[in-house]
Design a protein around this nucleic acid. Structure first.
Lengths: 157, 157
DNA sequence: TATTGTTATACTCTATAACTATA
DNA sequence: TATAGTTATAGAGTATAACAATA
């Protein structure tokens, strides 16, 4: 379990045998927290956070999203997208281009620096993910990805 | 997909075909956010939040945890446990008992009101979970629970 | 009138350090 | 000297409302 003393956790480990310990929602939250903290750590070397990495990842795919589309897709408030794009623009990773078809809208595009930064950051992020998924076989990883995709995408709200 | 216009999402849905759209970490975060918001909504009718519900769930199992054990198990700072137990105590759901074996430590125990509240809240939370897991068969739910448990519990940090 | 992006603001979370009482 | 609980505070993250430009 733990490479550290293990001693400190002995008392608390017994609490897994409680009502919440078996909850799917609880386990999901725990797994996500673990994944998130490792990804954050990996991205910090590239001056990115999970949020800005997500934005950059969409933009780098040449989807030319408007800020509104980023807001819808990432389920973040438009005002948060403003802050994120501001940050990425200050870093020189993205640019705003005015959409010729709708002059209210800004299309966000990647700079060459942004592409390079994303490639490097993605390598780190995937190494972190590898660590999180380490206990699972290739087959099990596919299963997991399939299952959570169906949870995440079958969004009725 | 969406019961609302559906129209607004058409633009953003295409962004699933980007780099981040396939990331396990991204999907995990999305699934967790969905689960969390539904659980929060369900618990709000019982004057509980996800955090206080978790604490109450451990306490109701008669594990008699100290605040330190709650802090270790839930991976929350001791000061956050203080606030959570304060809240639950004000609601009349838990009591602090001084540990006779170590007078520095407080053991947290459930009151009858706390037990009743938890039973009711758990029913709501499970209904919400049912909604989140709705797309999955019983067999798939077991698989998912098994897989994420191994992610969540095989914690090397 | 409705929508895109923006600004401002308040509220919740989270992290940290310092303090006390016990060990 | 170390640990359990507590308090206070600052930072990050989140949600909301109002506004200007454009549709």
């Amino acid at each position: 379990m733990s490479r550290t003393t293990t001693q400190e956790r002995v008392g608390a480990e017994r609490l897994w045998d409680t009502t919440v310990g078996g909850d799917v929602a609880f386990l999901l939250a725990r797994a996500n927290a673990l994944s998130l903290s490792r990804t954050s750590e990996a991205l910090s070397a590239h001056a990115l956070k999970v949020r800005s990495y997500s934005v950059l990842g969409v933009v780098v795919s040449d989807a030319r999203p408007t800020q509104r589309e980023l807001s819808d897709f990432l389920e973040l408030d438009p005002s948060q997208i403003v802050a994120l794009v501001d940050g990425l623009e200050r870093q020189g990773f993205v640019r705003r281009e005015s959409d010729p078809g709708d002059r209210r809208a800004n299309v966000v595009v990647a700079t060459p620096e942004g592409r390079a930064a994303f490639v490097a950051a993605r390598a780190s992020a995937q190494a972190a993910e590898e660590r999180t998924l380490g206990a699972l076989s290739a087959r099990e990883r596919e299963q997991l990805a399939d299952l959570i995709r169906r949870l995440a995408v079958d969004d009725e709200d």
